[in-house]
Amino acid sequence: MKKLSARRRHPLAALVVLLFALAATGGLYAAFAPAEKAQADSAQSLATEEGKKLYSVGCASCHGTSGQGTHNGPSLVGVGAAAVDFQVGTGRMPAQQPGAQVPRKKAIYDQAQIDQLAAYIASLGPGPAIPTKQQYSPDGADIANGGQLFRTNCAQCHNSTGKGGALSEGKFAPTLDGVDPKHLYEAMLTGPQNMPNFPDSTMPQKEKKDIIGYLAQVDSSKSSSPGGLELGGLGPVSEGLFAWIFGLGAMITVAIWVAAHTAKARKS
């Protein structure tokens, strides 16, 4: 104990305390954060002929040798080409690790390979096909109607301008910023992971297009925010932080200047 107190004035003492604090914070964080480890297994099959070959290398270990599913992955019979194009095209599949949710990442397969995989899965059972550009292109969409539909069907999870939000137990609705219109369309059609699907029977093709049009207007890198910094588009929490840090921070800085004594002619 005595040694410890003798050393607490050491110039590096603060650094040591800081390191301990950081380690403790990190430990706490690790305890709360959904587990994260494992490695991407990059299936780099050069076989261009069929998706089946790609499938048996990259997917079969979880989804079964013929897509029937295992306890590690759901059955792919009848999910359709659109689901494959979405999951693999956004890099979610193949998954890196089990967890609350499989996040978006850089796609491992190129579009030609994805199409082959999709063709193979589609052959297992009928399901939604990959939409055409005409279906998902935001051109000619009714933006206002898209906005209304978005607020009714999507905003509750994805936020009114698609910035994403939290779900239960570490799951989340991802941000829609920068998502390819084709993938937006496929997500609505197929309902990936915990997202419900919005089939054409309840949300016709034109309405999906309108929603994509709305997102292109309000949630893209070109979207305008007339009032200035968007602050993440997250609403009052980020506004409150801004008001405290920059607003009140500036006020206090100014107040310190106003109240400080002016430099004297000579040091006392």
């Binding site: 539909l149 009714t152 069907n153 309902g191 419900p196 699907n197 919005f198 089939p199 029977s201 309840t202 949300m203 016709p204 309405e207």
Partner: peptide, 21 residues
């Protein structure tokens, strides 16, 4: 009535995993 289309809903419109208001 489906809020998206303003049309009455049929059971066959609604698939497992879908969400309709």
């Amino acid at each position: 009535i489906n809020q998206n289309t303003d049309q009455p809903l049929r059971p066959e419109d609604i698939g497992v995993g879908s969400l309709t208001f």
